[in-house]
Design a protein around this nucleic acid. Structure first.
Length: 432
RNA sequence: UCCGGGCUGGGGUAGUGGUAUCCUUUGGCCCUGUGGCGGCCAAGACGUGGGUUCAAUUCCCGCGCCCGGACCCA
């Protein structure tokens, strides 16, 4: 006997379950397409060095890395950003903005936990080559629109920050080791206020500076309103004002996209990733029960790590795990069932060809149609039709065919009617 | 890497130091022109290795896997 279970953290998704996944992925991808993000497709395996550049050895230990038969060090893609950076660096001919979307598998060799599998789907949505606030806004708007389309926008909020805001304010206040302070801010939600203040002073801030940081990072609320609060507190410093102005502009843009109501300013959002250079954002469930839905931001220096061309970028990676939990909680995770438009039942072997021909005609209309493949009796065929949730069944038998008719049965009501064979496609097509 | 809980047919369960109950599922038949109901038949399980024992699915240990968490999270 061979071991028939799948590997740890990797899952078989059968038709019922995957139909619900497909529906969600379709919404995400369709939204991106409507914003003009173009679908790409890239290798599942890359040279290991691609990840060494950005992530270092420590994260490489959490990848599926191995030597291929040619002696090359290769890695199953744990994320797509390095791949995209490589392509953008290599292809100097691409016109900007470069707007890409892709949904594919990622692999990470790490401990399995709720929401953390070893193989998972991720949709990457990025804009390369544009450093404008308009691009920042478009990426956030695309993410927010996904939740609008899913019908759960009231359950989702985006927390938005700009690293340059904090950075410039800290510098204006004379803080030297801003990096250490940012790390403390990143941990703010895990700490009590006193602990937070203490940690800030340990990172090199004075008590007054720590208080300012505490006040700044306490600012939260609808982005269009929080801007006023921010402007009132922010120091009179050119760099800080520039950052504040950019955030105000972002708020205006988000309002134009009609997603500002889903967006809150929160200066405590730092995101651990070292490569973010400006905008950072995370999407959360408003009830605060779930982990972050996804996060993203601006990373203007990453592409430059892969060559001599500097290309600004902004985007996010959409993981499905938390969003799936949210949709289940909100009762909008699509039914985990397969659906079928028409099942063509054949009474006997002699009319099977007629059934297949009718099925072929119906499929030409784009309908999902099945026929009997097992030579089952009619009763069993109806049982099967029921099992695949057929909307209609068509009974093909000699008795009706003598009148050039077939029986059209509504599977839900059981109502039946005879329809001319020649009119079947039109009649069914109109109803489905 | 660490901490806690758990593993009995595909799914859900009962139970026991002498190999297992029921429900569901799946296939067949009752029923070669009508499904969801019903009846009959069949298929299918003690995660794995070792230890204790006359005998282990049951007790003990390791491992694996599952669930949750810490760390980490590109």
């Amino acid at each position: 006997m061979v071991e028939t279970t799948s590997l740890k953290g990797m899952y078989d998704r059968l038709p019922g379950e995957f139909s619900a996944w497909r529906a969600l992925i379709d919404v995400v991808e369709q939204t991106a397409r409507e914003f003009g993000f173009r679908e790409i497709n890239t290798p599942a395996v890359e040279r290991t060095e691609l990840y060494r550049v950005k992530s270092g050895e420590e994260l490489l230990e959490q990848t599926y890395s191995f030597e291929d038969r040619g002696g090359r060090e290769v890695t199953l893609t744990p994320e797509q950003t390095p791949t995209r950076a490589r392509i953008v660096q290599q292809r100097k001919d691409l016109s900007t903005p470069i707007k890409w979307v892709d949904t594919s598998k990622r692999w990470r060799y790490e401990n399995v936990q709720k929401g953390r599998d070893r193989e998972f789907f991720q949709t990457d949505i990025d804009i390369f080559g544009i450093e404008s606030v308009a691009a920042d806004a478009e990426v956030i708007a695309c993410g927010a629109t996904i939740y609008q389309k899913l019908g759960v926008e009231d359950s989702v909020e985006f927390l938005i920050n700009d690293r340059n805001l904090l950075e410039s304010i800290l510098q204006a206040e004379g803080v030297e080791n801003t990096q250490a302070t940012m790390e403390v801010i990143d941990d703010k939600e895990k700490l009590e206020e006193a602990e937070f203040r203490t940690a800030l002073t340990e990172s090199g801030l004075s008590a007054e500076q720590a208080e300012l940081v505490d006040d700044l990072t306490d600012i939260s609320g609808p982005i269009t309103e929080a801007i006023d609060e921010l402007e009132a507190i922010a120091p009179d410093d050119p760099a800080a004002q520039t950052a504040v102005d950019r955030m105000a502009s972002l708020a205006d843009h988000l309002d134009a996209y009609d997603v500002a109501q889903m967006c809150n300013l929160d200066l405590s959002i730092v995101r651990g990733l070292a490569y973010y250079t400006g905008l950072v954002f995370e999407a959360f469930d408003t009830r605060g029960e779930l982990r972050a839905l996804f996060g993203g931001g601006r990373y203007d220096e990453l592409v430059g790590l892969f060559g001599d061309q500097d290309v600004p970028a902004v985007g996010f990676a959409f993981g499905y795990s938390t969003t799936r939990e949210l949709l289940k909680r909100e009762g909008v995770w699509s039914e985990e069932t397969v659906s079928t438009d028409v099942y063509v039942a054949t009474v006997s072997e002699s009319v099977r060809d007629v059934g297949v021909e009718l099925a072929t005609d119906l499929r030409a209309e784009g309908l999902t149609v099945e026929t009997d493949l097992a030579d089952r009796n009619l009763g069993s065929q109806f049982g099967y039709a029921d099992g695949i949730n057929a909307t209609y069944a068509i009974v093909v038998g000699e008795r009706d065919l003598e009148n050039d008719e077939v029986t059209l049965r509504d599977m839900a009501s059981g109502d039946e009617e005879n329809v001319p064979v020649d009119d079947l496609v039109e009649i069914v097509g109109d109803r489905v």
